[in-house]
Protein backbone atom coordinates (compact mmCIF):
# COMPACT_ATOMS: atom_id res chain seq x y z
CA UNK A 1 0.00 0.00 0.00
CA UNK A 2 1.32 3.43 -0.93
CA UNK A 3 1.22 6.28 1.54
CA UNK A 4 -0.39 9.51 0.36
CA UNK A 5 0.11 12.95 1.82
CA UNK A 6 -1.74 16.09 0.71
CA UNK A 7 -0.49 19.67 0.89
CA UNK A 8 -1.54 21.56 3.99
CA UNK A 9 -3.08 24.32 1.85
CA UNK A 10 -5.79 22.05 0.52
CA UNK A 11 -6.95 21.16 4.02
CA UNK A 12 -8.52 24.61 4.42
CA UNK A 13 -11.03 23.72 1.72
CA UNK A 14 -11.47 19.97 1.97
CA UNK A 15 -10.21 17.49 4.52
CA UNK A 16 -7.53 15.24 3.01
CA UNK A 17 -5.89 13.23 5.78
CA UNK A 18 -2.77 11.19 5.31
CA UNK A 19 -3.88 7.79 4.07
CA UNK A 20 -2.84 4.54 2.44
CA UNK A 21 -4.19 3.11 -0.79
CA UNK A 22 -3.46 0.32 -3.20
CA UNK A 23 -2.53 0.74 -6.85
CA UNK A 24 0.22 0.24 -9.41
CA UNK A 25 -0.01 3.75 -10.88
CA UNK A 26 -0.76 7.21 -9.59
CA UNK A 27 -4.16 6.97 -11.26
CA UNK A 28 -5.05 3.73 -9.52
CA UNK A 29 -3.93 5.00 -6.13
CA UNK A 30 -5.78 8.29 -6.46
CA UNK A 31 -8.93 6.56 -7.70
CA UNK A 32 -8.90 4.49 -4.54
CA UNK A 33 -8.28 7.54 -2.34
CA UNK A 34 -11.06 9.57 -3.96
CA UNK A 35 -13.49 6.67 -3.79
CA UNK A 36 -13.51 7.30 -0.06
CA UNK A 37 -13.23 11.09 -0.32
CA UNK A 38 -15.10 12.16 -3.49
CA UNK A 39 -15.20 15.87 -2.64
CA UNK A 40 -11.41 16.05 -2.76
CA UNK A 41 -11.21 14.75 -6.31
CA UNK A 42 -12.03 18.04 -8.06
CA UNK A 43 -9.46 19.88 -5.96
CA UNK A 44 -6.68 17.77 -7.47
CA UNK A 45 -7.99 16.70 -10.88
CA UNK A 46 -9.68 18.78 -13.58
CA UNK A 47 -12.83 17.97 -15.60
CA UNK A 48 -10.87 15.56 -17.81
CA UNK A 49 -9.39 13.78 -14.78
CA UNK A 50 -5.96 15.22 -15.53
CA UNK A 51 -3.83 16.79 -12.81
CA UNK A 52 -4.83 20.43 -12.34
CA UNK A 53 -2.49 22.84 -14.06
CA UNK A 54 -0.92 24.26 -10.94
CA UNK A 55 -0.86 21.04 -8.96
CA UNK A 56 2.01 18.61 -8.86
CA UNK A 57 2.49 15.10 -7.52
CA UNK A 58 5.73 13.52 -6.32
CA UNK A 59 6.26 9.78 -6.15
CA UNK A 60 9.19 8.93 -3.90
CA UNK A 61 10.57 12.41 -4.43
CA UNK A 62 10.17 12.54 -8.21
CA UNK A 63 7.61 14.76 -9.93
CA UNK A 64 5.32 12.71 -12.12
CA UNK A 65 5.64 13.07 -15.90
CA UNK A 66 2.26 11.94 -17.11
CA UNK A 67 -0.06 14.65 -15.87
CA UNK A 68 -2.94 13.60 -18.14
CA UNK A 69 -3.19 9.84 -17.61
CA UNK A 70 -1.30 9.67 -14.30
CA UNK A 71 0.39 6.48 -15.48
CA UNK A 72 3.59 6.96 -13.48
CA UNK A 73 4.28 3.72 -11.60
CA UNK A 74 3.84 3.38 -7.87
CA UNK A 75 5.59 0.78 -5.74
CA UNK A 76 4.15 -1.19 -2.87
CA UNK A 77 5.87 1.06 -0.33
CA UNK A 78 5.93 4.30 -2.31
CA UNK A 79 5.23 7.69 -0.80
CA UNK A 80 3.00 10.00 -2.86
CA UNK A 81 2.84 13.70 -2.06
CA UNK A 82 0.17 15.91 -3.63
CA UNK A 83 1.35 19.52 -3.72
CA UNK A 84 0.26 22.77 -5.23
CA UNK A 85 2.84 24.61 -7.32
CA UNK A 86 3.99 28.07 -6.38
CA UNK A 87 2.83 29.21 -9.81
CA UNK A 88 -0.79 29.97 -10.46
CA UNK A 89 -1.51 31.49 -7.11
Amino acid sequence: MAKIFFTANIQRHVVCPETEAAGHSVREVLDNVFAGNPLARSYVLDDQAALRRHMTIFVDGHAIRDRARLSDPVGESSTIRVFQALSGG
Binding site: H13, L39, S42, V44, M55, Q84, G88, G89
Partner: peptide
Protein backbone atom coordinates in the same frame (compact mmCIF):
# COMPACT_ATOMS: atom_id res chain seq x y z
CA UNK B 1 -9.46 28.61 -5.82
CA UNK B 2 -6.80 28.92 -8.51
CA UNK B 3 -4.71 25.83 -7.88
CA UNK B 4 -7.70 23.83 -6.72
CA UNK B 5 -10.19 24.89 -9.38
CA UNK B 6 -13.65 26.43 -9.57
CA UNK B 7 -16.15 25.51 -6.87
CA UNK B 8 -19.79 26.20 -6.13
CA UNK B 9 -21.39 26.61 -2.71
CA UNK B 10 -25.04 26.86 -1.68
CA UNK B 11 -26.45 28.44 1.44
CA UNK B 12 -27.99 26.36 4.19
CA UNK B 13 -29.87 27.29 7.33
CA UNK B 14 -26.58 27.59 9.20
CA UNK B 15 -23.99 28.53 6.58
CA UNK B 16 -22.76 27.14 3.28
CA UNK B 17 -22.26 23.72 1.76
CA UNK B 18 -20.16 22.83 -1.26
Amino acid sequence: HGHFGVKLHRSTAVGWEE
